[in-house]
Amino acid sequence: FSITQFVRNLGLEHLMDIFEREQITLRVLVEMGHKELKEIGINAYGHREKLIKGVERLI
């Protein structure tokens, strides 16, 4: 299971460039909250919320 699959499953594949540029893996994403996601350029609250909720389902 990769970050690419995870992001695609959430319908947020347009954010993949950010994850690749910042070298974010699923392991790193698990540790990130709204503040960190915003810092790397994910400005939409809804997108950040989707990512965080998606990660919570993985754990």
Rank of each mutant, 00 (worst) to 15 (best):
L15S: 00
L29K: 01
M32C: 02
K38N: 07
N9S: 14
Y45S: 09
V55Y: 07
I59P: 06
Q23V: 07
D17V: 14
R21Y: 06
A44Y: 13
L10H: 02
R48P: 02
S2N: 13
A44D: 15
E56S: 12
R48G: 04
G46A: 15
E56D: 08
T25Y: 04
V7G: 00
I24Y: 03
I3H: 01
H47C: 13
R8I: 14
D17T: 11
T25L: 02
I59H: 09
D17M: 12
E20S: 09
E49I: 11
F19Q: 00
I59Y: 09
E56F: 07
E20A: 11
E13R: 05
H47I: 15
L58A: 06
M32H: 01
V7A: 06
V28L: 12
G46V: 15
R48L: 10
N9Y: 14
L51P: 01
K38H: 07
L29N: 00
I24P: 02
L29V: 04
K35C: 07
T4Y: 14
V30Y: 09
G11F: 04
I18L: 08
E36P: 03
I52E: 01
I40C: 04
E31R: 15
L37H: 02
G11A: 05
E39V: 07
G41T: 03
T25K: 05
M16E: 07
Q23K: 15
M16F: 06
F6Q: 00
M16D: 04
L15W: 03
G11Q: 07
F1K: 10
E36H: 05
M32Q: 02
S2C: 14
R8Q: 12
K50V: 09
E36Q: 08
V7W: 02
E20R: 12
E49M: 12
H34I: 04
H47M: 10
G46K: 14
K50M: 12
M32W: 07
Y45I: 11
V7K: 00
L12G: 02
G54E: 08
L26M: 12
G54Y: 06
L58M: 12
E22M: 07
L26Y: 06
L12Q: 01
Q5N: 11
Q23T: 07
Q23G: 15
V55S: 09
E31Y: 13
F6Y: 04
V28A: 13
R57L: 13
T4N: 09
K53A: 10
R27M: 11
F6L: 09
F19R: 00
G33I: 04
N43R: 09
Q5A: 11
R8H: 14
E22R: 09
I3K: 00
I3L: 15
A44V: 10
Y45H: 14
K35T: 09
V55N: 01
Y45A: 15
V30K: 14
I42W: 02
E31V: 12
E31A: 14
L26H: 02
E49Y: 08
E56W: 07
S2V: 08
N43S: 11
L51F: 05
A44M: 08
G11N: 08
L58R: 03
K53Y: 06
E39C: 08
K53R: 13
G41W: 05
R21K: 11
L29I: 06
F1G: 09
N9R: 12
I40F: 04
G33N: 07
D17Y: 14
L51G: 00
F1V: 12
N9H: 12
I18H: 05
V7Q: 00
G11C: 08
R8W: 09
E22D: 06
G54F: 04
L15A: 02
G46F: 12
Q5K: 09
R8Y: 13
V55R: 04
V30L: 13
M32P: 01
S2D: 15
E49L: 12
T4P: 07
V28P: 02
I24G: 01
I52W: 03
R21Q: 07
G33E: 01
L51V: 08
V28M: 15
F6G: 01
I24W: 03
G11E: 06
G41C: 07
A44Q: 14
Q23F: 08
E49F: 07
T4M: 10
R27Y: 09
R8G: 08
L29Y: 02
L10D: 00
R21T: 06
V28C: 14
Y45P: 12
F19D: 00
G11D: 07
R27T: 14
L26F: 11
E36I: 05
N43Q: 12
E49R: 10
G11T: 03
F1E: 11
G33S: 07
F1I: 15
L10N: 03
A44E: 15
E49G: 03
I18T: 06
R48S: 03
N9C: 15
L51I: 15
R21E: 06
L26T: 03
R27D: 15
I42G: 02
M16N: 08
H34V: 03
Q5S: 11
I24M: 07
G54L: 05
T25P: 04
T25G: 06
E49T: 08
I52C: 04
R57Y: 09
F19H: 00
I42K: 04
Y45L: 11
G33V: 03
T4F: 13
L26E: 02
G46I: 15
E49S: 09
E20M: 13
G41D: 02
K53V: 07
F6R: 00
R57W: 12
I24N: 03
K35S: 09
K53F: 06
K50P: 01
H47D: 15
L58S: 04
E49V: 14
Q23M: 11
H14K: 09
I3A: 05
F19E: 00
I42T: 01
K50I: 13
K38P: 00
E49K: 11
E20F: 09
H47V: 15
R27H: 13
H14V: 13
K35L: 06
G54V: 04
I24E: 02
V7T: 07
R8N: 08
G46Q: 15
L26R: 02
E31H: 13
I42A: 04
V30F: 11
S2Y: 08
F1H: 10
R48V: 06
T25W: 03
R8T: 15
I18W: 03
Q23D: 09
R57Q: 12
I42V: 10
G11R: 07
I42M: 04
S2F: 09
H34F: 04
E49N: 08
I52L: 12
K35E: 11
M16R: 07
I18V: 08
G11H: 09
G41I: 05
V55D: 01
Q23W: 07
I42N: 03
M16Q: 09
G41F: 05
V7P: 00
I52N: 00
H14E: 13
H14Q: 11
E31T: 14
G46N: 13
F6W: 06
N9K: 12
G33A: 04
V30E: 08
H34R: 03
I3F: 10
L58D: 03
T25M: 04
L51T: 00
I59Q: 11
I3R: 01
I40W: 04
E22S: 11
R8C: 10
K53H: 13
L12V: 03
G41N: 03
Y45V: 13
L29D: 01
A44W: 12
E56Y: 08
K38W: 07
R57C: 13
L37D: 01
L15H: 02
T25F: 03
E49H: 08
L26A: 03
G33L: 04
K53S: 08
V55L: 10
L58P: 01
K38R: 10
D17S: 14
V28K: 15
I3V: 09
D17F: 13
L37S: 00
R21M: 06
I24V: 10
I40V: 08
T4C: 14
L15N: 00
Q23N: 14
S2I: 08
Q5C: 15
I52A: 00
H14D: 10
L12C: 05
L51C: 05
G33W: 03
D17P: 15
R57F: 10
H34M: 04
E31L: 12
H14R: 07
E31I: 10
Q23Y: 07
L12N: 01
E20H: 11
V30H: 08
L51R: 00
I42R: 02
H14T: 10
F6C: 04
L15K: 00
K38E: 13
M16A: 13
E36V: 05
E36G: 06
V55C: 14
F19A: 00
M16V: 15
L12S: 00
A44T: 11
V55F: 08
I24T: 05
S2L: 09
I3M: 12
F1N: 11
Q5F: 07
E20Y: 10
